[in-house]
Design a protein around this nucleic acid. Structure first.
Lengths: 365, 365
DNA sequence: GCGCGGTGCTAATTCCGATTAGCCAAAACG
DNA sequence: CGTTTTGGCTAATCGGAATTAGCACCGCGC
């Protein structure tokens, strides 16, 4: 009876477009569009090596699968009723235990997720080349709603295959891809370096030293860039000798400070590009009998717990970890509706926390 | 052919008992044992109301399903090869961000899990009465291999339903049930309090004050118990006035110390039941012009980061968080083979870290 | 004693996706 | 030039679970 068949078709087809498209995307659908059999789709999607699939076919299948937003329908027939891992967001990070930032970012994620009733699943991969893909694949198979891929150090990453190929929303936190394949958030380090330096310039300092992190790290480059920008803005020529390379450690701060203070014209302020180095800086200055901030001003970066407990309390910049976490979730949610400019790299501001380690330079009164 | 059928049965049945029983438990299996059809099992397990099932049948099915440890086999054909969430351990904790212990415990878990190639999934529930069960159920449905249920404060818990009912291994970390339904690890706080006090008694102190946490907390009770035991062991009568109730905060340590030192016969040593209170204790003592450890000895507890940075460095006790994490995973693994004494409550030792805050009492020379 | 409806269940079907076996054509080989 | 190999793919089938349709039985009113 043709009418029956028509009716069935209509029923099936009606969900096309938006309307929460009743029908799940199945391997059959992909096969039809990609012009191959369901089996082939199965092989491709499972990367089953027991059967060879040509590269073009493989790609076509992958392409279509992505376009249709295929997901293993997860369960056999259960697809429709039980939403296994619906409402869950995966937070995958390389290292979470070593520094507080990861945890703070996670906290931001959880705050927002909580409001939405979403469960946040966390996995730490140590950047392990075996563990990480396995973890990501597992999350995807599991059917999480979105993945937040975070790095403990701000850096460029090549998107893991699993993430490059998946159709579920992915947000990069504290890392980004060169081609902006996925939305990403990082701290505005250049602006931060600028702000830290400007805070010193604002009260009259003209010779501002800085102790950087390791040269190869982006945070170092960017914070230094901000430092230079601030000097330029204030029409102060950049003096290379006032830049000392450190390695984020307290002892590097100690040595760097000694080096800076040994000049005939030592700086009247030091911008330590993280708080741990500021600790070493404090120590060196106190050994020299210098008072902070009367004799010399200091600014840190990262606003770690210790900044509050130094004497005097250290002016520092807050890494927007929590805000990045929040942004990620918000981005995921809005992505549901408007997912056009997928590849925007967003930078969030590093706020300045003014404490008592800055004062006008001695001469400037 | 009866032989064939026999063979098949043998094949199926062979996995009974240990031997990792190849075959997954299917609805068919449940149906056979419960004496009904697969459909019926499906209806019962999905609480599908479109078909009526009598209460006795329903219960029988549920019972059998529980006994066999039924799990939705998850995927359609995937059952055999791909272990979706096989090799994953769920770590569910109430609060992880607020204090380092949770993270350290997690780290211990991950260390061991890593060696086994297992992925650790973390979820923080805030102890939320809605979120927690949802999270646990999700993990169970997801098919994780085991669940570690952790609390940030040592305490007795009533096992969430999801955990009480599930057949997958569950370990309690830093909490336990009164009836020992599941294996559990907690720190040996009584022994710890004993050890802290004994360290003071060993160098000659006879009047040892202590500042406790909040009275309702188990850690407080146990550490105090250890303190009393140590006194008793050294044949020193317990003096109630030397016990001051605090609340774990630095200011409680400060006030408690003032209170203790106001006696005609002030103590020559103070056991602060956590490091934060020891910070307040140090402060109070310094204000009074007392030297540590020459005039008065101090012991902390928890060995937080700050203990190392006090002046003089504080002798403290390490919470065995990492060890508890490790123990949990090991327990899970051995549970595969020998799962008899399920309900053992294991206490792990709190190690004493000797630094420079203990010396013999002034008079005792 | 006969339809009638409800309860409790099952047989049969269906769905998604994995897997096996094997087809076909092009490449390599003799 | 015929034969074997092998790369690339599909048809057919299978398995777990949901679902539809409907069967058997029981009590009930007439």
């Amino acid at each position: 009876m043709p009418q029956d068949s028509n009716e069935k078709q209509r029923e099936r087809g009606s969900g096309l477009g938006k309307v929460s498209g009743k029908q799940r995307v199945t391997m059959q659908d992909i096969a039809r569009i990609a012009g191959c059999s369901q089996s082939t789709v199965s092989f491709v999607l499972n990367a089953n090596t027991s059967v060879k699939i040509s590269e073009p076919t493989r790609r076509r299948v992958l392409e279509v699968a992505r376009e249709l937003g295929y997901r293993p329908a997860s369960l056999p027939g259960l697809n429709r009723n039980r939403g296994r891992s619906e409402g869950t967001i995966a937070f995958v990070i390389d290292k979470i235990s070593t520094s507080p930032e990861g945890i703070v970012a996670l906290d931001g994620v959880r705050q927002i997720a909580r409001n939405l009733g979403a469960i946040v699943l966390v996995a730490e991969t140590d950047g392990d080349p075996m563990l990480e893909p396995r973890t990501l694949e597992m999350f995807i198979e599991m059917g999480v709603q979105a993945i937040i891929y975070a790095c403990i150090f701000t850096r460029e990453v090549t998107l893991p295959n699993a993430l490059a190929e998946t159709t579920i929303p992915v947000v990069l936190l504290n890392c980004y891809t060169p081609d902006g394949q996925r939305p990403a958030v990082v701290p505005g380090e250049i602006a931060g370096g600028h702000r830290a330096t400007a805070a010193l310039l604002a009260v009259g300092h003209r010779r501002v030293g800085t102790i950087t992190g390791e040269a190869f790290m982006e945070a170092t480059r960017d914070r230094l860039q901000g430092y230079r920008n601030a000097l330029a803005t204030a029409d102060i020529p950049f003096a290379p000798e006032l830049v000392v390379e450190g390695d984020w450690s307290a002892s590097a701060g100690y040595r760097g400070t000694q080096q800076l203070m040994a000049f005939d014209q030592p700086p009247t302020a030091i911008f330590c590009q993280n708080d741990r180095m500021a600790v070493g800086c404090y120590e060196a200055l106190k050994e020299m009998g210098k008072r902070i901030p009367e004799d010399i001003s200091v600014v840190g970066y990262d606003d770690e717990e210790i900044a509050r407990h130094l004497s005097p309390p250290l002016t520092s910049l807050i890494l927007p970890s929590r805000a990045m976490g929040r942004w990620s979730v918000e981005r995921i949610m809005q992505g549901d509706t408007e997912s056009d400019d997928a590849g925007a790299l967003v930078k969030l501001e590093c706020e300045l926390v003014e404490r008592d380690s800055i004062a006008p330079p001695p001469e400037a009164g």
